[in-house]
Amino acid sequence: MRRLTWIGAGLVAAALLLLPPLSGFHPYYLYLVSTALLFGTLATAWNLLAYAGQISFGHAAFFGLGAYGAALASLGRFSPWWAIVLGGLLGAGGAGVIGLASARLQGAYLALATLAYAEIWRGIAHNWSEVSGGGAGLIGIPPLPPLPWLPLDFTRGRAGSYYLSLAFLLVVLALFAGILHSRLGLAFAAVREEEERASLLGVHPLPWKILAFALSGFFSALAGGLYVHMVRVVEPDLVFSRYFSILPLVMATFGGLHTLLGPATAALGLYLVSELLLQPYVPVFHQLPYGLALIVVVLYLPGGLAGLLPSPRPSPHRGEGR
């Protein structure tokens, strides 16, 4: 079973690698699959935070911060590569802030706080016109330059951003795998499963939670930075859109919470079904897969949400005094 998973993953990776030449560098399909790959990264980043037991309904905040940060830095004549990294750091900071502020919130209330946080950033982007360009956003963001040491067909334009998105997803997946098997993963799982018990074993939960937020925010923001250099505009309602909060949640829970490859696989599958099969024929229902996937997860896969839901535990003073 495990072997099959890896063979399947290898085949998918090979197909993704060969897609541009096979599709004749078709710009629309490349753009579509690049976006799917970015959603894969976003879903994996969301999953990383969920691995530490923190439920976010506001990943749009981190994605959007990365997008704006990268756009502003790029327009400020930083090289796009540095701009994307700066955007990533901005997203990590923004995520750390909400992680710290909402440290005492759990479950649904943490989810609501992150949702509000994303809305706050959308509001700031709308109103802080001098910096963000207001509701109209920023235009004229330079494209990513082709990499010098590879054949031009593969590194310029859509193909370039395609391979970049793919490489980025693979790197994030590799990091996620590394984290799962490190001290980080151990601490995240302990904080998720039984925060109080973890603290009785000498683990101070707060810094780990903030770290999980910052890491997840960093990866999401890098995806945001990459995205604005692909679409080359940034608007509040585009990059702080609730879709960037809902879709990673749907994809990660549908693909299998806390698993390595599930969220990214679900992201590719759901996004491509929605855009390739439904959008051209029944555009009205092209978001339907996400809604249905979520309903299936909540109602029919109790295991699918199990990791989200903290196990009922006796509160400290209930052990006695019955």
């Binding site: 439920i55 309904f57 479950g107 649904a108 209330y109 989810a111 609501l112 809902i246 949640l249 749907v250 829970t253 996400y290 809604g291 996937a293 979520l294 309903i295 997860v297 909540v298 109602l299 109790p302 949400l305 989200l308 839901l309 903290p310 009922p312």
Partner: peptide
């Protein structure tokens, strides 16, 4: 909805 309802309902109604 599975327990805890606050969170699972939030996820469902987000969809």
């Amino acid at each position: 909805l599975p327990e805890p309802k606050e969170l699972s309902s939030l996820v469902l109604t987000f969809g």
